[in-house]
């Protein structure tokens, strides 16, 4: 582009001069310098581009193709047109999975978007040893979901610590087998998923909080604003750009819940924890229903993009800079 415009404006300039003027006048930060070959900027990203082509672009195209076929991974794929999508519309388990994934989305919202902000405010104080607390709150993030799943199975055990606390405080009359109860299994998994990722979201908010000038709070304090008012009128408005980030991350994460389900409930009892992610995996790798799994994957993909766009539209323009 730049070269084209330049040529039309200075057609009579000597070639050597033209080259220099192009850099000096039009694009002072232009990259190519004498001695640099034209292909140099393309060599550096080459490994990344090859990986992109092989492990992102090619599979994405494969997924779109496959979603129009019926294929059991052994015999020849059969073209079924929009058949997989029609099937999906009338598949109760698909809708159960979608519904459960949306329940994760809603359930994890307070755990990942709201509470971590409060945690961040808490650990943003200047106190001796505060870094240790930050680290402890972050601990579940660095451990594998498998390990977390095992640990929480112990917590959820009928004779486990959660039942002891809840019966002890009189919240429950009887211990509950959380993971075997169609009502409690999903909330239990929401709790585990939220608990595991809270640290990440807390750290994002903490990074945001540390960009807020402390004199804002001091001024508010002098004016007699309470802690709640300072949170409501200084912290929250200034943290909105970060909420946009955490909200998008929360949606992506909630809609893709898989490992906790795989480790703790396998979608049961009675499909009560069957998430879209788990159903897609199960259709592909347990039932070898490749075309159908691809079609569901595409639907999930479109959903995620729509959610990200909606989130962008909602939070855009609400950005406040201090």
């Amino acid at each position: 582009m730049a070269i084209h415009v330049q040529e039309s404006h200075a057609p009579s300039a000597a070639p050597a001069r033209r080259g220099r003027r192009k850099r000096d006048v039009r694009a002072p930060r232009s990259g190519r310098l004498p001695g640099q070959r034209w292909y140099t900027p393309y060599l550096f990203p080459l490994p990344a581009l090859i990986l992109f082509g092989v492990f992102f672009a090619w599979p994405a195209i494969t997924a779109i193709q496959l979603s129009f076929f019926d294929w059991d991974a052994i015999s020849e794929p059969v073209f079924v047109g929009a058949g997989n999508f029609a099937r999906l519309m009338s598949d109760d388990r698909f809708w159960t999975g979608l519904g459960n994934s949306l329940l994760f989305l809603v359930g994890m919202f307070p755990l990942l978007v709201v509470i971590p902000l409060l945690l961040a405010v808490l650990v943003n104080q200047r106190l001796p040893g505060i870094k240790t607390f930050r680290m402890l709150y972050y601990l579940p993030v660095v451990t594998s979901m498998v390990a977390v799943g095992v640990a929480w199975e112990y917590v959820f055990n009928q004779q486990g610590v959660l039942n002891w606390i809840l019966t002890g405080f009189g919240v429950l009359d009887q211990p509950i087998q959380y993971l075997l109860d169609p009502v409690w299994a999903l909330p239990a998994l929401v709790l585990v998923e939220g608990w595991k990722s809270m640290g990440v979201f807390m750290m994002i908010y903490l990074a945001g909080l540390q960009t807020i000038p402390t004199n804002l709070y001091e001024a508010a304090k002098v004016d007699g604003a309470s802690a709640w008012h300072r949170l409501r009128h200084i912290t929250v408005p200034l943290i909105v750009p970060y909420i946009a980030v955490t909200l998008t991350m929360e949606m992506l994460e909630a809609m893709q819940v898989f490992t906790s389900v795989y480790v703790m409930t396998q979608g049961g009892p009675q499909d009560s924890t069957l998430t879209l992610g788990y159903y897609i995996w199960s259709a592909a790798f347990q039932k070898y229903d490749m075309g159908y799994a691809s079609a569901m994957g595409l639907v999930l993909w479109v959903l995620l993009i729509l959610m990200a766009l909606a989130n962008y539209r909602i939070t855009k323009g609400r950005t406040v800079t201090p």
Partner: peptide, 19 residues
């Protein structure tokens, strides 16, 4: 590169395995 952020692992699992 940006677009890979919107190709979540869950969706890519099967096609990537096939590739």
């Amino acid at each position: 590169i940006l677009s890979t952020m919107f190709l979540p692992g869950e969706v890519m699992l099967l096609p990537r395995f096939l590739v």
